[in-house]
Computed example of a mutant assay.
Amino acid sequence: MVLLFLPLVAALTASSALAMGPWKGNDASCGADLACALGERSYHVLEPDGWNGVSPLPVLLHFHGWSRTGKHAQRSDRVGASAKRRGVLLVTPNGRAKSWNFWTAGTEDVPFTDAVLADVAKRYPVDAARIFVSGYSYGSAMAWRYACHSGKDVAALLAVAGSIDQSETCEEAPEEVRHVHGLADTVMDFPVGPGGDVTYPVALWRRQLGCSESEPRGDWQARSFLTLSRTTWTCDQGAVVLDLHPGGHFIPHGWIGRQLDELLGLTPSYP
């Protein structure tokens, strides 16, 4: 009798969880356009389309660009829409004065980001093996800084048009690094290496992860007018991917979605 009863209890529990809607622990005070307060600071969270309120969620933590806020990234079709349609929870912290202190190793923004992820895990059932960290421009440099000092639990760094000094030595590293940069970028200048080396933008991670051989992977279209050239490295401790395009300072349309498709094992789609 007990054996017959247990499956029924499990079924009712699951049904109740689905009926209650999105799971937020003991606090449903934030979401959509309402920021989640965390001490004197805050962050935004955007739930994916079609989530059942129970299944563990991959997370994309994205740092906004200079003079922006986390809300801008949530509303972006190149960030927010790409995460939503792929079943990924988008988390966008708010920088002080709409910026980030990525210049030094001792920045308060690293422990702040740790606290954001810990708070998100109290509100949502997070898939801890699929934490992706991204950023654009100043936010990309902040994503690099975060991965450099708190990256051991990061499955992949997805960086767009911004980095830190390639001569730095990092305490930690993500499992995988994917960086995209425009060759004509003059806002966060494209960091050409010695002898005109265009692979220099990921020199730090190639050194950190013990990368050796590089493999050009040809070109793929992000949009009809923009072709990205990809190079990958074989590494002892992970993987490094560099995508280059001939344009300037922007997030290539479809790039973040493409990376999530590949990392999550989804059929590539656009955007």
Rank of each mutant, 00 (worst) to 15 (best):
T169Y: 07
T169F: 04
T169E: 07
T169G: 05
T169D: 11
C170Y: 01
C170E: 01
E171F: 06
E171P: 01
E171H: 07
E171C: 03
E171I: 12
E171Y: 08
E172T: 15
E172N: 09
E172I: 12
E172S: 15
E172W: 07
A173V: 05
A173N: 01
A173R: 04
P174F: 07
P174K: 08
P174R: 04
P174G: 09
P174H: 09
P174W: 07
E175L: 10
E175G: 10
E176H: 07
E176G: 06
V177F: 10
R178G: 01
R178Y: 08
R178H: 02
R178T: 02
H179G: 01
H179T: 03
H179S: 02
V180R: 00
V180Q: 01
V180C: 01
H181D: 04
G182A: 04
G182Q: 01
G182T: 01
G182E: 00
L183R: 15
L183C: 12
L183T: 13
A184W: 12
A184Y: 03
A184G: 10
A184K: 12
A184I: 04
D185K: 08
D185N: 09
D185A: 12
T186C: 02
V187R: 14
V187M: 15
V187C: 11
V187N: 15
M188T: 11
D189M: 11
D189Y: 08
F190I: 04
F190G: 03
F190Y: 14
P191Q: 14
P191D: 12
P191G: 08
P191H: 14
P191E: 09
P191L: 08
P191M: 10
P191R: 09
P191C: 13
V192T: 14
V192M: 10
G193Y: 08
P194D: 12
G195P: 00
G195H: 07
G195A: 05
G196D: 03
G196C: 09
G196Y: 07
G196P: 07
G196E: 04
D197Y: 00
D197S: 06
D197P: 02
D197C: 02
D197H: 02
D197G: 09
D197Q: 05
V198S: 04
V198Y: 03
V198T: 13
V198Q: 03
V198D: 04
V198I: 15
T199Q: 10
Y200C: 11
Y200L: 05
Y200D: 14
Y200E: 15
Y200K: 12
P201T: 09
P201V: 13
P201I: 08
P201A: 11
V202E: 05
V202P: 03
V202Q: 00
V202D: 02
V202S: 00
V202I: 02
